[in-house]
Design a protein around this nucleic acid. Structure first.
Lengths: 243, 243
DNA sequence: CGGCAAGTTGAACCGCCTCAATGACGGTGG
DNA sequence: CCACCGTCATTGAGGCGGTTCAACTTGCCG
């Protein structure tokens, strides 16, 4: 059997070492793959049946729509991320999930998850770790939207995405693919796409970062982190020097 | 032994029935009580030792400070709420906890928690339920700050607090004690205290709600919920009629 | 070539912030 | 008993960050 490590395995391996049994169980969780087209929903808000997903390939996002048609993006999911773990226990999912790009997900039933984590408790702990890391990101996101200005919060998101992608081996903090357009950025950061455009221009003019053609190129990581007041501790990974 | 049900027991009892063994275990978790004075920290950001707390009496809050001295309140904790569950698994706590009023907390060690939840898995599930409910509240908070205007997000918070207090028997959705001053409200909602003042005046003038002398009196719950676009599904309780 | 999605730019507006004062209240000490 | 605090609430005036509305551009795809 070929050694294909999924993004999830790469991520969890950074948290703890995985023995063959655990690797095999993860492989089984990730077996039931399914493709979802860009721009389509995986789970819709207030849906009652609860399955969770592991994102295998592509980018997705969690969001919530409001009365007036405006949208708040809660978080972006990258390969290796769980989606919908949070709402497995709640009776109704509190928000929706959709694909940014075409994506591949592994669907896991609640029953299957419980069975696996009961048999291999260390995997359960790892999943909890991943979940609390995700929640810490949402908290940081709230801090950004509540108390950082447009420039700072945009910088913050761009730094965070780079670190997360580096974590699963899909880019580096200084340069990574990013299929997120200015509308997504706006809805994530509580701004308008028009203003995001001006913000990105300013970040470019200040020699900090360029966002173009589906790529983010960071020219001055230190400067970008300083602007964002970025402290990556909540990602629970070895911090870069000059954190 | 007298039948004193803690707020935590009252809350969990709404989620699932608790047998005597479970009640006894909860009682033991809540035994090690400690008083903390208003305005003092329980856990400080980047602290590495991890204990969690159950809030027994009083109000507390989770927050994060920024470089420039501004503060973002992540959430308010009410009696019966866990505090710090989220960061037990992360290597460093990502934010601080402090008391709003004088509070009584029960301190629980990670070891004690693991032991209890292993012995009584249903309690573990209940704790997970509480944790995902808390996270859903943070998500809703993010939506408020990102996409609702000052009036809407203030209304949203006031409605939510009422329902949560009612949930643990400490008030009703229409009238409840609330020791939160305008500075706390401002830091929670991503606004300034000055603007909160004007917002509260407007809410009062519109006959929706009065916030005064440590109490919230809702005059028009329906109207307040409509303004806030409030859908309480994420609290996972029977929704009021006319949700 | 036409059409649509995404990006870019300008100008005017407005929600909320900043700065500055003033009022209401309870606590404390002289 | 009152003068003096400190904390919180309240109000006004002016300014700024981000929105809104309205083009126009660019690139891709059929």
């Amino acid at each position: 059997m070929a050694v294909v490590t999924s993004a999830l395995v790469r991520k969890l391996a950074r948290f703890m070492s995985l023995d063959p049994l655990e690797l095999e169980a993860l492989g089984r969780l990730e077996r039931a793959r399914r493709t979802v087209r860009a721009d389509t929903d995986l789970v819709h808000e207030r849906q009652t049946e609860h399955t969770a997903f592991i994102l295998e390939e592509g980018w997705a996002f969690a969001y919530k729509m409001l009365q007036d048609g405006s949208r708040q993006v809660i978080d972006f999911a990258l390969p290796g991320d769980f989606m919908g773990l949070r709402s497995v226990l709640l009776r109704t999912s509190d928000h929706s999930f959709a694909a940014v790009t075409d994506i591949v997900v592994a669907e896991i039933s609640t029953r299957q998850m419980i069975e696996t984590f009961q048999r291999l408790p260390r995997l359960g702990v790892a999943a909890l770790w991943a979940a609390s890391r995700d929640e810490a990101m949402v908290v940081e996101h709230l801090v950004s939207v509540g108390r950082r200005d447009a420039l700072e919060r945009t910088a913050h998101l761009l730094v965070e995405l780079g670190l997360r992608l580096e974590f699963v081996g899909l880019g580096t903090a200084a340069s990574y693919p990013c299929p997120i357009n200015q509308y997504y950025l706006a809805d994530a950061l509580g701004l308008t796409a028009i203003h995001i455009n001006r913000v990105l221009r300013k970040l470019r003019e200040q020699g900090l970062v360029t966002v173009r053609d589906g790529r983010v190129e960071v020219h001055d990581l230190k400067g970008l982190r300083r602007l964002a007041d970025y402290h990556g501790g909540y990602l629970d990974q070895e911090d870069e020097p000059e954190g």
